[in-house]
Design a protein around this nucleic acid. Sequence first.
DNA 1: GTCGTTTATGCGCTTACAGTCATAAGGGTG
DNA 2: CACCCTTATGACTGTAAGCGCATAAACGAC
Lengths: 113, 113
Amino acid sequence: MASDGSKPSPELLEEFSQFFRLLSEPARLQLLCELKQGPQDVAALIGATGFSQSHISRQLSQLQRAGLVCCERDGVRAIWRTDDDVVEDLCNLVQNHFMQRLEQQLKQLQAVP
Amino acid sequence: MASDGSKPSPELLEEFSQFFRLLSEPARLQLLCELKQGPQDVAALIGATGFSQSHISRQLSQLQRAGLVCCERDGVRAIWRTDDDVVEDLCNLVQNHFMQRLEQQLKQLQAVP
DNA sequence: GTCGTTTATGCGCTTACAGTCATAAGGGTG
DNA sequence: CACCCTTATGACTGTAAGCGCATAAACGAC
């Protein structure tokens, strides 16, 4: 990383890993995907994912701490939304990595006999 | 994600999360950073990180399965290397996210009084 | 005020995995 | 062959965190 040959500090490394840990849980990724469709309250997310209310609430607050989602309150209702494209960009990069890896494996198989 | 409004399949979501899980451990990120400096064997990585030999070996094989590192054997010695820039690109995106977030917070604080 | 609804949180269970130690496996050297 | 060096792996422990249940807190409707 850092492309200039320098190594990132342990603190930065820790922050990176914490951020990636957020995305290492399918449940949280799924919630982010659902919110990409548009702002929703927890009830709608329960319907879309099947997770328990408490679970969803917890995961959303984790994502909120990282600035990946935010909510505006309508009385007691909380409407959650995501206005950040980082996760989408990250996933696209990873997907490209998957594809390049598969193409490479395919080539190696084709090259033998 | 998918930017066309469609939601990725549960299987793809699972693969994404597994990949991010790899990066959710500071030890693995650090190993990747060390290998960015140039190919090394396990002994050199022990010296650079202070981790135990078995720990390093395990983490490297996890990274290898994901195609993030590979090793060429020199007799019994294993020289590990990373020739993929995905992780670096991912970290740069995340770092931009951090910076934008901090700038936004700064603006909000400046706007108040 | 009471009641119903929506979200947040304390508690407990359970699973996953980082990390260590000891050991095995594979290769070099005499 | 025996001996040493390097890496991989089985067994184990401790801890972090997902997940649900029950409950509390906050707000609106009556």
